[in-house]
Design a protein around this nucleic acid. Structure first.
Lengths: 186, 186
DNA sequence: TAAGAGACCGACTAATCAGTCATAAGGTGT
DNA sequence: ACACCTTATGACTGATTAGTCGGTCTCTTA
């Protein structure tokens, strides 16, 4: 049997994605997870800490997945493509995580400084700086380049979610990537 | 003296932008606005209706501002630039509206169908279709083209907010527009 | 086997919330 | 002067919430 902390995170994710943070009572999370109310506050002293723990959990998982997809001999464009595709497909396959993130990143729980520290973001910024020093990317702040890519991934995932026909259309996805690539390339 | 309905919307906007929808009690809004609790529910039968009214209020205002900026003899690229710049500057100048929108559009109060019906979105889609038929834009769904522009505007506003140095840098803003333009142009 | 620690329970509480209601003042048309 | 509508008040309520607490169970280690 899976441990109760993980069970709580998973249940919270489902309920948050469906009803939002505030419409989801901690007692409801515990009940749905099949554990006591007390144990929730044993692992997460406040609701905010539960929410932050979920954020790190998701960021870690998407980071691990993305890293597992890239290969060493790749060109810069190939690497960017791989990361872009990994992000799009991971978010499509993990719809609840995606929903949670959208809400979280636009809620008072989130701050920009939290994000910048994560290794996923740091890896992306490094890549962006590489692109700039190779004179391939536009002459723009590396963090901004990353944020542009991220927002395009987000838009693409939302679109694919509402238009499932395209979800397995490789040609269409390539078109979407060209949009993102054209945006950042010189 | 300005009417109480408007006073309520303005006060709610400030409090929502600062603390979020749920951390802001209706009673607090009324108190801060200097009116009774009852009158809030007289004008907005539920909290959700207040939130939706605020959304339409903002969308209407940004629409009117944007339309006032475009001129008839403009080329397609000029029109797109004007709308892009209008959106960026309006959101920068109306920081609370921007904050509110971010939260609203990523909350369970929002649905995609609400957005599609607004004249601001419909105008943008028309322009996107114009660009496609003139073979200037990429061969991609017009709604998606609009959503791409919107998400880039959002990203740019966020960046400018945290990097105020660039806020009056015309050259930098032109760079930002070129990113958006390169993304959608063929 | 004793003792300490972490995992776990669920009833409980103090606070907070959206929404109601009885009441009344001011304006408008007849 | 009357009926009626809109605007307005603020005390009130029933439901809900995050977080607490006293106590039990189980595992580890000396």
């Amino acid at each position: 049997m899976i441990d109760k902390r993980t069970k709580l995170i998973n249940t919270a994710k489902t309920l948050f994605a469906k009803n939002g943070f505030y419409a989801t009572a901690t007692a409801k999370i515990a009940k749905e997870a099949g554990v006591s109310n007390g144990i929730l506050f044993h692992y997460f002293p406040t609701k905010a800490e539960l929410i932050h723990a979920m954020y790190y959990d998701i960021k870690d998982r998407i980071f691990n997945y993305s890293v597992s997809q890239i290969y060493k001999e790749a060109t810069l464009k190939e690497s960017i493509y791989t990361l872009w595709l990994a992000a799009v497909e991971w978010n499509l396959e993990n719809a609840e995580d995606f929903e949670f993130m959208l809400q979280f990143e636009n809620s008072p729980y989130f701050s920009n400084d939290i994000e910048k520290k994560h290794k996923y973001v740091q890896m992306s910024i490094e890549l962006a700086e590489q692109g700039r020093s190779q004179n391939v990317f536009k002459d723009i702040n590396a963090l901004l380049l990353f944020q542009i890519m991220s927002s395009l991934v987000e838009t693409n995932v939302k679109f694919l979610k509402y238009n499932p026909t395209f979800q397995n259309d490789v040609e269409f996805k390539n078109k979407l990537f060209e949009i993102a690539w054209d945006a950042i390339k010189k």
